[in-house]
């Protein structure tokens, strides 16, 4: 009887432990949790300049949890896994997004979880989501600083171009004056010649008129003699 009891216990454990594991697995796959009112999910981030232990997690501005741990992962490239402990009652979906941002201009960074438009499976314990957008005050200041530096450089270049252009414009104007003087001189020199040319044109025209008259009066004679009397 004692032997049977020991066998019964062993057989009972042998059947119940796998059955229990199976039950837990099914519950877990269906999205249930017996761990309590919170669940831990992981956020994959490239940098930990903004996120630290205690960083608040929000959904639509409503706080639902905090970052409880951050661990580095060295392979394949250095990145970090932040453990987010969030309220179990909030319905979040697997393909939700995590935005790391500042609450205001001097506020601490927060992690804003946003559900997708197209809802998939529910977010479960130990799921991994990715912090795809990274916005913090330091980054904004860095961007503004970079913008101002670029602007200063651009202004310097414009100023330099303006200085160089002034000299060029002066040279251009001087050259233009010289060209005008040259044109005037050419015109003055050519005035006398122009009168002579015009006189010559007049004589030529008169001769041509005479030839035309002669051709009209004695065309045969003009053609056969070939010369004027």
């Amino acid at each position: 009887m004692k032997q049977i009891s020991k066998n019964e216990l062993r057989v009972g454990l042998f059947i119940l432990i796998p059955a229990g594991l199976l039950f837990l697995f099914i519950m877990f796959k269906l999205g249930y949790s017996i761990a309590g009112s919170t669940k831990d999910i992981y956020l994959k981030i490239d940098s930990i300049t903004s996120v630290k232990e205690g960083t608040q997690i929000m959904v639509k501005g409503y706080p639902i949890g905090r970052v409880v741990d951050i661990e580095p992962v060295y392979k394949p490239a250095l990145h970090f896994l932040a453990t987010l402990r969030i309220n179990n009652e909030i319905e979040l979906y697997e393909n939700c997004s995590a935005v790391i941002q500042n609450q205001n201009i001097i506020g601490d960074p927060i992690i804003e979880l946003r559900n997708p438009d197209k809802k998939g499976a529910l977010l479960r314990e130990h799921d991994v989501i990715e912090g795809f957008e990274y916005v913090n005050l330091e980054a904004i200041l860095q961007d503004v600083h970079m913008l101002l530096t670029n602007l200063t450089g651009t202004v310097d270049v414009v100023k330099q171009i303006a200085l160089e252009s002034r000299h060029n414009v002066r040279t251009l104007l001087a050259d233009l004056s010289a060209s005008v003087a040259t044109v005037n001189r050419v015109l003055e020199d050519s005035q006398k010649d122009i009168l002579a040319i015009l006189g010559s044109f007049r004589v030529t025209a008169k001769t041509m008129s005479e030839i035309a008259d002669e051709l009209k009066k004695h065309p045969i004679k003009f053609l056969t003699q070939g010369k004027k009397d």
Binding site: L22, F25, I26, F28, K29, Y42, V73, Y74, K75, L81, R124, H126, D127, V128
Partner: peptide, 22 residues
């Protein structure tokens, strides 16, 4: 042989093991 975070390994297993497999 290669570092795999236990949570990530477990997560992959749970994701890959569907109720149909069960």
């Amino acid at each position: 042989t290669v570092y795999i975070a236990p949570e990530a390994f477990l997560q992959t297993l749970v994701d890959a093991f569907s109720l149909k497999d069960l």
